[in-house]
Amino acid sequence: MNVQATSAAPPAPAPPATGRPSWAWRRFARHRLAAAGAVLLLVVFALAAAGPMVAPYSPERVSIMDRLRPPDAVHWLGTDQFGRDVLSRVVAGARPTCLAAVIAIGIAAGAGVVLGAAAGYAGGAVDGAVMRAMDIMLAFPGILLALVVVTILGTGLLNVMIAVGVSLIPAFTRLVRGAMLSIRQREFVVSARAIGCGSVRILGRHILPNVWAQVAVLSTTALGWAIIAGSTLNFLGFGVHPPTPEWGADLNTGREYLNAAWWMSTAPGTAIVLVILAINFVGDGVTEALDPALRRP
């Protein structure tokens, strides 16, 4: 689980705020994989929103008579060990899975932006303290941090995601700080300061808007990590409380039925794989669209 794959993202120097969004968008749309990924993600988010309403059956309804049915006309993706419709569980699982990942990223990005901005803008002692704290968190193995957080807070989807989110904080902090440092020296910031703008104003009006793009890119990638990390914690026995349908938990249950009922793990597993692939393609597309350095013949 790539809990703290951290600086995976920020190879590119801070892109300047792309003046003409439509260009960026066109570049993105030309990236076919990214476009496909975006469509898939939209579908998933739509499912997450519509949730159980579009599922053909109740995802939690137990029906022992129908257990472990292979895919057929009635149950397109078969049934699980309790006779629950696998398709319905995958569809209904979109919401908890996505919501959880979004919460984790929210925590990581929120804390990361605040800490990173503080460190990058204030510099000096604040910077030193924040970055040493991040060094400590980075040196602390992510999975252990997550396990310990879950041990303290107890199991359950939300707690798992808090655990994952906390372990992703350093990635965002470092990214934001790095971006801030480079932007701080840019002419428009220097001139803003020269004409007497206050710190808060500079931060809010000039610096942060330039950081968002990168935070957005990292967030997309981190969304994938969060889903994987969550499923790994499920594997270790710290996950959602049944009978909530969640892809990681269902995949882990299905793994134990791999020999008897391959479809049980295939469905949620494929959902995870597709979503993460989509996230990655979208991430690549966004990066290429925003980063002029990569726009070369």
């Binding site: 994987i228 594997f235 995870i272 794989v273």
Partner: peptide, 11 residues
């Protein structure tokens, strides 16, 4: 290579 990161390790 991206497929590698997309498939949960335990699976």
């Amino acid at each position: 290579s991206v497929l590698g990161v997309a498939v949960p390790n335990f699976w």
